[in-house]
Simulated scan of single mutants.
Amino acid sequence: MSPLLEARELVRIYEIRRGLLGRPAQVRAVDGVSLQLKRGETLGVVGESGSGKSSLGRMLLGVDASQGGAVYINGVAMPAFGSPGWRSLRARIQMIYQDPLAALDRRINVAEQLREPLDIHRIGDAESRTTRVREVMQAVGLRPDHADKFPHELSGGQRQRVVIARALMTEPELLVCDEPVSALDVSIQAQVVNLLSDLQRDRGLGMVFISHDLKVVRNLCDRVAVMYLGRIVEEGPADTIFSDPQHPYTQALVSSVPQPGRALNSRIILQGEPPNPGNRPSGCAFHPRCRKAEDICRHTVPETRRTGVECRAACHFAGLAALPELV
Rank of each mutant, 00 (worst) to 15 (best):
D244C: 01
D198S: 08
V192C: 04
V233L: 10
E234A: 03
L214A: 02
L253D: 09
V193Q: 03
I210F: 02
S243P: 00
V257A: 12
H247E: 09
V217F: 04
F209Y: 15
A263M: 13
Q200N: 07
D185L: 11
H212E: 01
V257M: 13
L195V: 14
Y228W: 09
V217S: 04
T240D: 15
A190Q: 08
P237E: 15
S255E: 15
H212Q: 11
S266G: 13
Q246T: 08
L199Y: 02
R231H: 05
G230M: 10
S187P: 01
L253V: 04
G230L: 02
R201I: 02
P260K: 01
A225E: 08
Q189C: 14
T250M: 08
D198P: 00
G230D: 08
M227L: 08
R203A: 10
Y228K: 05
S266I: 11
T250N: 11
A190E: 06
L220H: 07
Y249A: 13
L195Y: 10
D244L: 03
A252P: 00
F242G: 07
S256N: 04
D213H: 11
P258Y: 01
S211R: 07
P258V: 00
I232H: 02
P245N: 15
L199A: 07
Q200D: 11
D239F: 06
C221E: 07
T250D: 10
M227F: 08
P248V: 05
Q189F: 03
P245A: 14
I188F: 08
D202Y: 00
I241W: 00
V233T: 01
D239S: 13
R223T: 12
V186W: 01
S197I: 14
L214P: 00
V254H: 07
M207L: 14
F242H: 09
M227K: 07
V224M: 12
P248D: 02
S187W: 02
G236R: 02
D244P: 00
G204S: 03
M207Y: 08
Y228T: 06
A225F: 01
T240N: 11
L195Q: 11
V208D: 00
I232E: 11
A252K: 09
P237H: 12
N265L: 07
G206L: 12
V192A: 13
A238N: 01
R201T: 12
V186S: 03
L253R: 09
D202L: 12
G230Q: 07
R231V: 13
N265Q: 13
H212C: 03
S266K: 14
E235G: 10
S243W: 06
Y228M: 08
A238R: 05
Q191W: 00
M207I: 10
M207W: 10
N194H: 03
Y249C: 06
D239T: 08
L205D: 09
M207N: 04
D244I: 10
E235S: 09
V226A: 05
P248A: 12
P258D: 11
Q200A: 10
V193G: 12
D202S: 10
Q259A: 15
S255C: 14
P245R: 14
E234V: 04
S197Q: 15
P260Y: 05
L196S: 07
S266H: 08
L205R: 04
V254S: 14
H212P: 00
H212Y: 03
V216G: 10
V208C: 03
S211F: 05
Q246W: 02
P260I: 06
Y228V: 13
E234Y: 05
G236T: 07
